[in-house]
């Protein structure tokens, strides 16, 4: 399975056949995504969520994404640091992924990776996005349940009114609840959410104070995640979300093929044409994407 993940995430020879085969088994897991700014405690919370799922006897897989350097192509994948206490548990599988140039806090092959884990029988798959901040909303079209992680001292009620990640959370985990000011942070979130229109068959996003450090509030957070999953099934919204995910998966494959094929055709000659003003980016870009340059 570890090798299959590598083949699909690195698009090695044979990845298309593998992805086709694994797609047949897709859609069986409950996928949970965590987003939030760097240092808000996503990985540490996942450590707690994994422990809670294991205590119930469930197997868990984690896909954790960290940023690729735009300058060197390298990456430091550090999410395991927080989750390593489960390294020897055969019921827990974790793979670290780099963004490899994709914006939005995820990796372009994330769906293929999820399908591998589903085929291997993991019923709960946790996806950790890059901690990019306000605008990492792609995860909402990848997973069933979105947990937005924040912490006290991360801004006032006007931050909580902004568009972006505030719009996609099904559950808002206010981490570091061992710090003072957590009640204020929870109240501000609740206040801002109370002004938001209801979505998804009437689900009211939950706000859960939690401490990954002490474990305080973890059962409540788990209960909120389960409640959202139950709501998706009871309201029929799950089917709608799944259709959004499929649309997104298709869009990713199309975008990836088009850009990769077009980028493969770019040569120094094209840059010469731009530098010498014998062509322009709009014309050249149009020709390259339609295969005529």
């Amino acid at each position: 399975m570890a090798r299959a993940l590598t083949v699909v995430t690195e698009e090695r020879p044979g990845h298309e056949a593998l992805s086709r085969a694994f797609f047949a088994d897709s859609g069986r897991a409950h996928t949970v995504g965590l987003c939030g700014s760097p240092g808000s405690g996503k990985s540490s919370l996942i450590n707690r969520l994994v422990a809670a799922a294991r205590a119930e006897g469930r197997t868990v897989a984690v896909l954790a994404v960290d940023p690729t350097s735009a300058f060197t192509g390298g990456a430091f994948l550090g999410d395991r640091l927080r989750i390593q206490e489960h390294a020897l548990d055969a019921g827990v599988f974790m793979r670290s992924l780099a963004t490899r140039g994709m914006m939005g806090g995820l990796n372009a092959t994330i769906f293929a990776a999820i399908h591998v884990l589903e085929a291997a029988g993991y019923g709960r798959i946790i996806v950790e996005t890059v901690g990019t901040g306000q605008d990492e909303v792609d995860v909402a079209e990848v997973v069933d349940t979105v947990v937005c992680v924040s912490a006290p001292y991360q801004g006032d009620e006007f931050q909580a009114m902004k568009a972006g990640t505030m719009e996609i959370g099904d559950v808002f985990a206010v981490n570091k609840a061992d710090l003072p000011e957590v009640e204020r942070a929870v109240a501000m979130l609740k206040d801002a959410l109370s002004l938001a229109p209801r979505r998804d068959g009437g689900w009211a996003p939950r706000v859960a104070p939690v401490s990954a450090l002490s474990g305080l509030g973890v059962p409540g957070l788990c209960a909120d995640v389960e409640a959202h999953r139950a709501h998706l099934e009871a309201s029929g919204e799950l089917a709608g979300r799944r259709r959004r995910q499929l649309r997104r998966e298709l869009a990713l494959v199309i975008a990836r093929r088009l850009t990769r094929d077009a980028m493969d055709r770019v040569t120094d000659r094209h840059i010469d044409m731009l530098a010498g003003k014998t062509s322009d980016p709009v014309t050249l870009g149009g020709r390259l994407t339609s295969g005529r340059a």
Partner: peptide, 29 residues
């Protein structure tokens, strides 16, 4: 240094058992 040289580097922190390291090497391929 490896990150800056273009590698994807996974670091697991201090005090790992050989078993944890082997299991991690497998899962992370």
């Amino acid at each position: 240094a490896l990150r800056d040289a273009g590698f994807e580097v996974i670091y697991t922190g201090i005090r790992q058992t050989p078993e944890m390291i082997a299991a991690t090497a497998l899962q992370e391929d």
